[in-house]
Design a protein around this nucleic acid. Structure first.
Lengths: 229, 229
DNA sequence: CGATGTTTTGAGAGGATTCAACCACAGTGG
DNA sequence: CCACTGTGGTTGAATCCTCTCAAAACATCG
């Protein structure tokens, strides 16, 4: 439950830039928490006062569209931070963050983060780089979703999920999502996901048992996805 | 052609945080340029060494999809800066920037910007806020493009273009785009844009003369767009 | 075991793309 | 001067991809 391992240590890509006293400052103000599947760290539209550093588990970040349909924008797992966008831009939260796999995280008040940005140039720069990378990924996804077919996008997402979360000892994707959640990433209907998954299964690209997905033919899937991984 | 007015002045949202000596530093290293319609500041995949601050005109930023189709991600006009994402994340440019309306801009070497981030906390914070706002917009657009129909998106874009660039004395949108460019924002086919525009025209929502678009019924268009402007 | 949520399958409707042909217009060069 | 060329805009028809709706199978859990 303590975030010292995955977050506030010298091995963390972002917090490694902090001095010992800055680390002490953050640690003395942080607030650990354990969150079960389905619980929400913050809701779209909330005023967020701090950031969350994820120590374990998986969080999904999504927006709610006009008809109430979720659009999943990204996931966050060990070492990643969420909520910083709203804290830094002084805007309301533009996403809801909900736990997918039971998660421990710690909350750090926004003033502390802003203080660190102002006083520690390396920290500021690293945080900026992180934000810029995320923006680059968002731009790519806009292009994909605007131009690719649902099937191409599903193939791409499956590859992405493997790269981001890896596989277990049986080569099964570590992250397991409902069909609806997959649909809410790809931006399509649940039924379409089901049809495409069973199509991939028939073509021997995947093996599926419930929510467990095993990629059998990575390169064919990669070809279908039309991307450059 | 001098960028002192729109960029490097105390009235600029970002550069106002600089001290006089920092402003002098940036001004002594900047490089002004005039760019005609169609000219490209940098291409997707380029390694960018500095940022461009736009003094006048309009630039479109787009990614090129698999089949060579452009996806326009945003526009930049007076006072805005482009290229900073790649400079700060140390990644290759993820977009191409092409001039739509003849533009003057000035180039500032990346090292200067990074130096300023490290040394001036307020500047760093403001730049971060700008990036975070852009990220928020990108997230919204992902949701829109994934969930809305092409018609809803077109209505939304038209409203957006009016809000961002305004209208002239005849109430005509100041930014004029080809049908293809509109299609490349909305994420649809050129023919679809043509059909939808003439549909809007028939319903007396718009008046169209070539590339000049005049919004006659803003609120109906806003209703169609299903958004919260 | 019933109750609830998830997954699956089918059929039909609808939105959007593609392809093709055609027009308008501006610029080029013989 | 006029044919030639290229770009941008328009329209129609056929096709295809996806969505929606509905119903049934399945799973999970208290």
């Amino acid at each position: 439950m303590d975030c010292a391992e995955n977050c506030f240590s010298k091995s963390h890509f972002l917090f490694k830039h902090l001095t010992d006293s800055e680390l002490d400052l953050i640690i003395s103000h942080k607030d650990d928490g354990l969150h079960k599947r389905g619980s929400v760290l913050y809701n779209e539209g909330n005023r967020i006062k701090g950031i969350y550093c994820i120590n374990s588990g998986i969080i999904k970040l999504f927006k709610t569209g006009v008809d109430g349909k979720e659009q999943i924008l990204r996931f966050a797992s060990a070492g990643e931070i969420i909520g910083y966008r709203s804290v830094l831009s002084s805007e309301l939260a533009c996403t809801t963050s909900e736990v997918i796999n039971e998660s421990t995280s710690c909350y750090v008040p926004g003033e502390i983060v802003i203080e660190l940005i102002k006083n520690n140039g390396d920290f500021a720069l690293e945080l900026m780089q992180m934000t810029c990378r995320e923006l680059g990924e968002a731009n790519s996804y806009i292009t994909d979703i605007a131009q690719k077919t649902a099937k191409e996008r599903l193939a791409e997402i499956l590859i992405h999920l493997k790269n981001e979360f890896g596989v277990d000892e049986n080569d099964v994707l570590k992250i397991s999502l409902t069909r609806e959640e997959l649909a809410n990433i790809v931006g399509t209907a649940t039924e379409s996901i089901i049809r495409m998954l069973s199509e991939f299964k028939q073509e021997k690209l995947l093996e599926i048992k419930g929510r467990n997905i095993k990629i059998l033919d990575f390169s064919s899937l990669n070809n279908i996805s039309n991307s450059f991984f």
